[in-house]
């Protein structure tokens, strides 16, 4: 009986750990999920299965590919105490796990790109931290091709695109 209970306990732990692989970032997201000051978005892997299915055929191919490979998306934004949250988020990131891809400071806005499991241009998780007028934390999980990311801004129509294209025009 003792043996049996030990085996059962081990099984429970194994199942629990496989289901609850909450790393520091996930915990951080969970911590502020119910905070009214935050805007929280979570798209589950299951939802991405649906998203990939309904993605329109006439969509830009690169965008389509990126979305198809995504397995999870978490967004956390707030306009309060942005500096403090930015600092807290940065301190929570395990530097052994995440590698800084790029840091940009532009007109009082800090932007940090962090990646996990980097292999060439394909990465498994991309973490975006933005601190300034607003605090933004975004976590993209899935196969992410950085070359395609850089093209995304051109194909998706949002604010700042004109600015971007202008630069390109300048470049050309």
């Amino acid at each position: 009986m003792k043996k049996l209970s030990i085996i059962l306990t081990m099984m429970v732990f194994a199942v629990a750990s496989s289901f609850g692989q909450a790393d520091a970032i996930e915990k951080y997201f969970n911590k502020y999920m119910d905070d009214e000051n935050f805007t929280v978005v979570y798209v589950s892997p299951k939802m991405f299965e649906y998203v990939a299915k309904i993605a329109p055929e006439d969509m830009d191919k690169d965008t389509r590919d990126v979305i198809k490979d995504l397995k999870g998306l978490r967004i956390l934004t707030t306009e309060y105490n942005t500096a403090a949250f930015y600092k807290e988020a940065k301190s929570l990131i395990n530097r052994d796990e995440y590698e800084v891809l790029m840091t940009v400071r532009d007109e009082g806005t800090n932007v940090e790109f962090l990646v996990k499991d980097q292999g060439g241009d394909i990465i498994n998780e991309l973490l975006l931290l933005v601190g300034g007028d607003e605090f933004v934390m975004m976590s993209f999980v899935g196969k992410i091709d950085l070359n395609k990311i850089s093209k995304l801004a051109n194909s998706i129509d949002i604010d700042g695109m004109e600015h971007l294209d202008k630069i390109k025009e300048d470049k050309n």
């Binding site: 995504l70 975006l128 998706i156």
Partner: peptide, 16 residues
Amino acid sequence: TTMEALAYLGVHFNKG
């Protein structure tokens, strides 16, 4: 939402 997020990401990525 995903498209918006990706665009936001793209913008910041390109800014860098």
